[in-house]
Structures are given as structure tokens and as C-alpha cells.
Amino acid sequence: MGAVFALVTVLAFVIVVYVGVGIAGLRGLFGIVIPYAAFLVFLIGMVYRMIEWAKIPVPFRIVTTCGQQKSFRWVKRSRLESPYNNFEVVLRMILEVFAFRSLFRNLKAEIKGPNLIYGSYKWLWLGAIAFHYAFFTILLRHFRFFSYPVPEPIQILDQIDSFFHIGLPHLYMTDVVILAALTFLFLRRLADPKLRYISLASDYLPLFMIYGLVISGILMRHFFKVDVTQVKEFTMGLVHFNPKAPQVGVIFYIHIFFLSALMAYFPFSKLVHMLGVFFSPTRNLANNSRAVRHQPAPWWKKPKFKTYCEWQEEFKEQLIESGQPIDEDCYEKK
């Protein structure tokens, strides 16, 4: 259901652009107004989300410890899985953000006869890491459209990515990787009944939008060619706030529209996990709550409870009867 909706939405995007640019010729709208607006929404939205989260206190140190705590010198502790100070927390976060540490731990449970067994299952980790790194590389690569002269590292990256001369222009390896990874991420949602059950339209939509973005990009590079010089004149115009919509094929506008849609969608969807992961209290805190005094949340009030003296009054008889000491201090204070 969700997948169908997402597919229809994405196809609608294509049709909208096709009608808007191909037929109505609204190049200014689709080339300039929408991208700028989407970028603003993205920028402001993301910053807003971060501020929104940051305004909420973290009242307790609810670290998820996945390794030995710091205790005795002779006990080997796990700095990464049970960080004791901020430096170790940073290391843990780096592993989490750059290596997807937690997904790497993934297992797959299986019932075999009377036994429950756990297999190693790193496919999700592999798919996720392939997708994210490929996406990031593609993003960096696109910097060649936003700079002149193009910085050397970007050019080197481009050359490494197109190291194997397949087709002309050369096929980027990241293009292949991201398509494969997206396909895996999509198919697993369909193939595994559990995942199909939990997947919402808003899980398929970003996948499909990125599919659209990637496919339109690949089509533009290899099949429905556009004049890349004009495209760059346009992108350079964008960053100089002096854009002129290029007279190129609709495919380019489809590409730009998918990008805009994705940017605008970002802050309001699950895609905020990109920033949210940094705000996760189970990962970004140190496991030192017995050693270091932390500030309680501003709203936190010390609890009211039955004090010893009140309690002693209530159980005085039994205490005396069973020979337990009576605290005379309770009466002195009064």
C-alpha cells in the first residue's frame, strides 16, 4: 500500500515537471524558485529541529552500555562500548556515525526445531553503509558544479569514482553502488513480511525519491544527454544568486525537482535521523553517572517521601518490641 502510494507520488513528480517544464515551459519556477525555496526549507528546518531537540533537557544518564564499565584497574573495560568520558563518547559516536557500529552487531534469529539460534546478519549494515557512503560521495562529487576552478580533491574523487572506463562518459562506481544498495533496501522491505508489516508510505517515499534522483542523474549522464556546460553556468548562477534557467532537457529539471523535493522533505520526516543520531541520549552520554555529579533537569523536583522519623512514629511499637534502636534525634529536633 505504502509502496504504491510512494511510487504514484514519485511518478506524479515526474509528470508535474514534464508538464511544468516540457509543456508549460516554467523553467524559472522549476529551475530557480523551487530549488531555492527547498534549500531554505531544508536549512531552516534542520536547524529548527536541532534547536527544538536541544531545548529539551536530558534528565537522566540513560546510556546503553554494550561493554564492560570502568571499575577496577585489573578489569579490562570497553572504552568504545561503555565510554567513561567525553573523549570516549566522541569515539563511540564516530564509530556509530561513520561505521554504523550498532547495525554491524545485527543478528538474525531463527527457530530450528526446539532451538532458537542466532546467525550473523550484516546485510543491512552493508546495504546501509554502501548507500550512505555512495550518496555522500555523489554529493561531494557534485561540488564540481558549484566551484570554479574545481578543487583538486574533488577532481581526484571524480577520477577515482570513474576509475574504470566503462562507457563514455565513464560510469561512476558510486552510481552502481547506490542503485544496488537502494534496490536492496527497497526489496528487503517487500521481501521480509515483518518489514512489510512495519513499513509505512513514509518509508518508501524517501527511497523512491532518491531512486528518482539517482536514476534521473544516470539517465542524464548516459542517455538523455544535456549540455553540461549550460548546467554548470546555471548552478554557478545559483550560488552567485544570479541564476538563469538553462535551456536543457526536461530530465535535468526532473533531477533538480527530485533534489528539491528531497531537501524540503528532509526536516519533516524520518530523514532527520541524520542529525537526530547525534542527539540520542543512549549513545551520546558517558557511562560515569556514579562517578561524576551531573546536573538534574531544571524541571526536576526532589521527591517528597515518608521520612525516617515519620516512619519511626508509625512503627515505634514494633521497633521497640523487636529490640531495634529508636532514634532519639527525631524528637530532639522537635
Binding site: 531537540w53 534528565p59 524520518k270 532527520v272 540520542s280
Partner: peptide, 14 residues
């Protein structure tokens, strides 16, 4: 009051 709650509501990718 609880950042954990808000963040966990926002960022799950299922």
C-alpha cells in the same frame, strides 16, 4: 521534559 522521548519519536527509520 525528556529529550530521549522526543528524539526517539522523531528519528526512527523503521
Amino acid at each position: 521534559k525528556y529529550r530521549s522521548f522526543k528524539v526517539f519519536m522523531d528519528i526512527c527509520v523503521r
